[in-house]
Design a protein around this nucleic acid. Structure first.
Lengths: 187, 187
DNA sequence: TTTATTTCTAAGCATTTGCTTAGAATTGGG
DNA sequence: CCCAATTCTAAGCAAATGCTTAGAAATAAA
């Protein structure tokens, strides 16, 4: 038949994800993607259709990547203590060679707001709800919590994660730890 | 002498601020500023030097604007209850005709990260610390709180404000209220 | 080896970006 | 009224943006 692809799509998406993560969506140009992914624009467009298409694949890849730490929480049986551990795990997860990058999804929600591509925005909001459900399931492990309490605390913790993601970019490690410890008092 | 300016600098900056607030820094072009401010590019550049310059003035203007609600907290003497009220005041403050816009400063920190203009980033971080000091001063009004507790809770509340700013863009009013109520339990 | 098919390179497209500038319009002081 | 000072308009600059395309290079099946 013909020539075979000289790059692995998963691998180049992984690289693209890092670039979007560090720079945001709009501040990442196709030229930058070319360099980082190590393939030509033609290859990018024939594989992923558009810059938007590349980004959507990156979000999928990000979800897989963060599964490494959500999985720990899913399997743990420590109730709210497991969620606190997840907060610490996230800080480690989002650590870069030079500082923290926050959460890719959170960053993008903030950057694009309601002006972003609807498909992307739907993807991002669904991620927020997945995290909230994850937290709710952990909270159920704690006995003597009403359904209403679980609901509210899951909502509170998911929103606190947004704050942590943002704060990780400007606060010191000690301040971040203080935040987590205070956030979990009396839950 | 000569012709006099046909626009008021404070007024046009107010308009520019609204645009940056809704769209973010990078997604606001000089052409868009032209339209919104109602003046020509020449006027923009002769008055403010650069797009960066316009934005810096907008940050100043934003600080003045938000002083409307920080002032309430400064003058109140209700300790942590005053801070909770500030959270609600902020939601009202950041309300737009079509939804919430979050906090301009928070949005920009998240968007530009460490890649932004250093002068802007310094300005933004100082704002975060001002809010934290404001919270700490209110917490001092509550008796029987140690200095260490005040420090940690101020840090916690300032970080929670980051979360609230972000969450205001994607959560319902009810969810936001739940978040605030839960965040202030046992403080 | 030939050939059909797909991937690759690299140049180029129109549009938008932040910013500049030449010259016309305006307006105050003499 | 005149003229010098300052504003305005509008055109234009180079560079960067997302995306396309013509043609060379590679390769699997015949």
């Amino acid at each position: 038949m013909a020539r075979s692809k000289q790059y692995n799509e998963e691998e180049v998406i992984e690289k693209a994800m890092g670039l979007f993560w560090r720079n945001g969506y709009e501040n990442t140009s196709v030229r930058m993607l070319e360099k980082e992914m190590g393939i030509n624009q033609f290859s990018i467009y024939s594989s992923f259709g558009s810059k938007n298409g590349v980004f959507l694949e990156c979000i999928k890849s990000y979800k897989k990547k963060i599964h490494r730490i959500t999985e720990i929480l899913e399997k743990s049986n420590n109730g709210v203590a497991g969620i606190k551990q997840y907060f610490y795990d996230f800080l480690e997860f989002s650590k870069d060679d030079n500082g923290k990058k926050g959460c890719l999804v959170t960053n993008t929600v903030n950057e694009l707001g309601e002006h972003g591509d609807p498909i992307i925005m739907t993807e991002l909001k669904s991620f927020f709800n997945e995290i909230k459900t994850l937290f709710a399931n952990s909270l159920k492990q704690d006995k003597n919590k009403t359904q209403e309490t679980i609901e509210k605390q899951a909502n509170y913790l998911a929103t606190s994660m947004l704050g942590l993601s943002l704060a990780s970019k400007i606060l010191s490690g000690e301040q971040l730890e203080d935040f987590i410890e205070t956030a979990f008092i009396n839950l």
